[in-house]
């Protein structure tokens, strides 16, 4: 057991846990998005889904706690490995250029993998805002009382500032995922030369899919 704990604290161990937590959070995203799609079905479907969910108090508490733990671990590991990675190069280069040909051209110069920490931090900020909006219902400019979940959602998303933040936030999430998912599979040691390519494409498709899926709601709300 001690050995296992020691190993999980190693550079590889931490990346491994990072990958596992990341993938589990991806699982949550899929479930979340699926639930949200009920918005398109109509108020009744969505409200019923929300009610059913909220009735499972114990289950919900466990799930929320689990999610919180996953997030905290993921964030803690990002900070802890990030700190070590900074120490690993105390003096930086005067000039640094990529040698990956596809990365040195056009928009790919800002390829997501170099911005994981930044995109992750921004996504975290977005999630906090999102929790304030929907979980804590703490927005001073909004009256939550007496409204059905569907109504609340439309109302929140109709706000142009909220819509912009949500649109940008979900796109950033997508950026984070396009590298994160493939990276997790590599950290878990599941890839070889062939599957690596597959994971890379899967990661991009997944990231774009999740991102567009969530980004569609503020757009939809505008026309509501």
């Amino acid at each position: 057991m001690n050995r296992l704990l020691f190993a999980l604290r190693s550079s590889i161990g931490r990346k491994l846990v990072m990958g596992v937590t990341g993938l589990l959070l991806c699982g949550f995203l899929v479930a979340h998005l699926a639930g949200n799609f009920l918005l398109y079905v109509g108020p009744d479907a969505y409200n019923e889904y929300a009610d059913t969910l909220h009735k499972q108090k114990l289950l919900l508490a466990i799930a929320e706690l689990g999610l919180l733990v996953l997030f905290l671990m993921h964030i803690y590991l990002a900070i802890s490995t990030g700190k070590d990675n900074k120490t690993a190069r105390s003096q930086t280069y005067d000039r640094k250029q990529t040698k990956i040909e596809s990365n040195s051209q056009g928009i790919f110069k800002a390829w997501p993998e170099n911005w994981m920490f930044v995109s992750g931090a921004l996504v975290l900020g977005f999630i906090i805002l999102h929790l304030i909006d929907f979980r804590m219902e703490f927005r001073p400019d909004i009256t939550y009382e007496g409204k059905e979940p569907f109504e609340k959602a439309v109302m929140l998303l109709k706000n142009p500032i909220t819509a912009t933040v949500y649109f940008a936030g979900t796109l950033l999430l997508g950026v984070h995922l396009t590298h994160g998912v493939a990276s997790a599979f590599q950290s878990l040691g599941t890839s070889n030369q062939w599957t690596q390519k597959c994971f890379k494409w899967f990661s991009i498709i997944f990231g774009v899919g999740i991102s567009l899926g969530f980004a569609s709601f503020p757009v939809w709300a505008l026309f509501k």
Partner: peptide
């Protein structure tokens, strides 16, 4: 430092070592 899977190493390697070997290392470690 630790690996964040950006694969600059593979592009810089004069011996053409593939990052497949990093995945294998992760696997061996697991």
């Amino acid at each position: 430092g630790s690996c964040t899977n950006t694969y600059e190493c593979e592009a810089a390697c004069p011996a053409g070592i593939s990052v497949e070997n990093i995945a294998r290392l992760n696997r061996e470690y697991l």
